[in-house]
Design a protein around this nucleic acid. Structure first.
Lengths: 182, 182
DNA sequence: CAAACCATGTAAGCTGTTACATGATTTC
DNA sequence: GAAATCATGTAACAGCTTACATGGTTTG
């Protein structure tokens, strides 16, 4: 799927500038893109060409001009159609698993060290996502259903990381049970 | 990270042709790439240029020629170094969540239908991964530690899908508790 | 006789990241 | 005086997918 619908969704919530969209994406647990300029500003130009958004320049004194994007009726309809399209299973890219998969040349100590580093990285990520969730910046809250969905989805992502941390403990216990098997 | 180390890892297990690497990747739960020709054959050429692998053409009667790739000492050392590099947190791309995030225009029935479709898709994916795991095609098993790691990693991926299925039930219960809030 | 398998590769295109470029204002 | 924020955009490159191209052999 494309970042364009994530942007269109934000604009269906309220009119925004590219800069604001970037900030909201960076703060969002669910809109998982990095929020880089290139993709956002290009997508906005494309959405405009497709007449899914309109744009209005706001000149400011003491500050740079802002291009405020607003969704059109046709944009709202395109968004709704897309939200009803066939759901896809999530993609899990666990790059660390590839490292562990080929750890055959490593000593037990090296593998143990790697597991600890992975644990640290995950703890950091967990804290980061929890902090984002606590701030709840850019969570639309137009009705109870929307609020509930955004909250449970954020909790789902947080739980995914917690599960990963629990898995590390499991691996450690299993490795210990066989004397690390090497 | 790059698919090149996944390929190098497979070759550290045993010499293989591009075609065999493709099949092994398709059958692997852990090596998560789609196993498309373009990436694999290009990576093999690059690995060869970097002297991390050697290649030998095997001519066959009644069958096309095979290029068998073998890892070099320098390849083994590059692989080991890479496996010891700093682990990264997994990437979760839950595209469906973006759809749910912007479901504000949907009726309760439409959202309920979407959740069911997501559940079906996940069940399918779960069965597919379980079947792959049961076959255990392309699982190296050179010592007890390696065997244990590959098994727990596969179980981790399967558990991720099961957690997602459990989450759907949670959302349904929570939505029901507030009368779907819309 | 059609489909699947073995086996190699190429072309085009979309997605995504990092870094560069500019420049004023505000905060520490 | 340096760093962060506001605000727009571009360039280069890495990663990945789908589809195309070829052609013999085996299986149903």
């Amino acid at each position: 799927m494309s970042i364009k619908y994530a942007i269109l969704g934000l604009l269906s919530w309220k009119p925004l500038t590219g800069y604001e969209i970037k900030k909201l994406m960076e703060d969002s647990i669910i809109l998982y893109w990095s929020g880089n300029n290139n993709q956002i500003y290009k997508s906005l130009v494309q959405l405009h060409e497709e007449d899914l958004v309109t744009t209005e320049v706001q000149h400011q004194q003491n500050a740079p001009s802002r291009k405020i994007y607003t969704i059109t009726a046709s944009g709202l309809s395109a968004l709704k159609q897309w939200t009803l399209s066939a759901p896809e299973a999530p993609e899990y890219k666990k790059a660390f698993f590839v490292q562990l998969a080929w750890s055959h040349q490593q000593s037990n100590e090296e593998t143990d060290q790697l597991l600890s580093e992975y644990e640290q990285e995950l703890s950091l990520r967990l804290a980061y996502q929890q902090e984002k969730h606590a701030r709840r910046n850019g969570y639309p809250d137009r009705d109870q259903r929307e609020k509930l969905l955004w909250n449970t989805m954020a909790q789902n992502v947080i739980a995914s990381i917690e599960n990963e941390l629990r898995w590390i403990d499991l691996v450690r216990r299993e490795l210990a049970a066989v004397g690390w098997g090497k």
